[in-house]
Amino acid sequence: MQILALETSTEWCSAALWMDGKLHLRETHAGNRHSELILPMAQQLLAEQGVSLSQLDAIAYGEGPGSFTGLRIACGVTQGLALAAGCPVIGIGSLSALAAAASLETGAVGVLAILDARMGEVYAARYRDGVEVLPPALFKPEALPSPEPGECVAGTGFFAYEALLTTAWAGQNYSVSAQRYPGAAHIAQLAVPKLLAGEGHSAERAEPVYVRNKVALKKRER
């Protein structure tokens, strides 16, 4: 099975190629240059492994939450590539990819994944054995649920509010992962079981998951 994965939801930019269990990865700190980097990175990966787009079984993209613009770059590029390749697409949550990386690093079964959402808020979700037990949601840092015993905490959202959170969670039994960002490696790996379960869908249904959905007030709400 061959899956191309793209992740551009944070200031990092990564592309991964999953080939029957072997993973090839490109990642770089992109700032806001994702549009200049993501397609060349994907093309290099494919060229190096001698894989053509038409040989892909699916294209996976980091669906979010994360930078709105970043989410749409990965999603839009995926829509275009998948339409051309005629293959299905799979959206993978950025918090779940982050949690998978943290779990692999620390060996923790439970992960509280937290990404900085700017504007004084964070996106957070909780996973146990890779299963989502608290879906991605927006929190004020002080309103985050505290870690459960033995749980590991990961992501930029923790480090952005480290002093506040360590104080609030004093006395709790949790570990802190060094993982800060979601990456294409875990987007690809998480896409494998989804594809096997028949969850791949057509390019037109690829859409970012923003979580922060209130972005403007209607006239009658002002």
Binding site: R72, C75, Q79
Partner: peptide, 17 residues
Amino acid sequence: AGALLVGASFAQGLAVG
């Protein structure tokens, strides 16, 4: 900017594909 990026991303992905 954000709106332009949608068209550009899709167009470039399709063109590369």
